[in-house]
Computed example of a mutant assay.
Amino acid sequence: MAEPVRLRPGAYAVEVRLDLPHLAEAGARKTLRLCLAGLPAAGFPVLSDNMPFAACRAADLRQDGDGVTFAIRCEGRAAPQGTADYRLTPDGFEGRLALRLGGKSMTLTERQTGRWQGDCAPGERPLP
């Protein structure tokens, strides 16, 4: 196993793009700010709006060098599921989350690109 890459603690500007199958230009885009203490113990969260993944948890988080993978598991029958694959640098990350909606054969892809911006603001709590 390769030595793990450590993310620099602080605030990250994260560009988020949600790709919808068969709709090349219809995906939603936004930029938001995350405060991180390093690699979140529960994996990176799904950041797109109106997604049924808010109550889901990360499982089987693994890091090998600059690569991080984990599964996204939701409770219930026909619940949504997903997988995540990230690449880390000390000052940023790029990730791809493949999100399969429960009871449907549709998979959405959320892409995240985070760049370190500096220290977190006073009172801003980092993701655990």
Rank of each mutant, 00 (worst) to 15 (best):
Y86L: 11
L127Y: 00
A79G: 07
L61D: 02
G118F: 09
P4L: 13
G38P: 07
T113S: 14
A121I: 04
R17G: 04
D91H: 12
A13G: 12
L99P: 02
A58E: 00
A11M: 07
A54F: 11
Y12I: 11
N50G: 14
R8H: 10
I72C: 06
R8G: 02
V68E: 08
P21V: 00
R6N: 11
G10T: 08
G102F: 10
Q63E: 10
G67V: 12
T113W: 03
M1A: 15
P40R: 06
A121N: 02
G27S: 05
L127V: 04
A11T: 05
R96P: 05
G92K: 05
L20C: 02
R115F: 01
P90A: 12
G103T: 09
R62A: 15
R125F: 00
G76F: 05
R96E: 15
L39T: 05
E110L: 09
L18V: 09
D64R: 15
G27Q: 07
P40E: 02
I72K: 08
Q112H: 06
N50A: 14
E94H: 12
D19Q: 13
P45Y: 03
G92L: 08
E110N: 08
R115I: 06
A2V: 09
A78W: 10
L34V: 10
D119Q: 14
D119E: 15
A55V: 04
L18A: 05
E15F: 03
Q63S: 13
C35Y: 01
G65Q: 06
V46N: 01
A11K: 10
A98S: 14
G95S: 10
G65V: 07
D66R: 15
Y12V: 12
T113Y: 01
V16W: 03
Y12G: 08
A121M: 04
L20M: 10
R17W: 08
A37E: 12
R100A: 13
V5F: 06
A59K: 10
L108E: 03
R73P: 02
D85A: 15
C35T: 10
L108A: 08
F93Q: 02
P122R: 05
R96K: 14
K104P: 00
E94V: 13
V68R: 03
R33A: 10
K30G: 06
T113A: 15
G82V: 08
A13R: 15
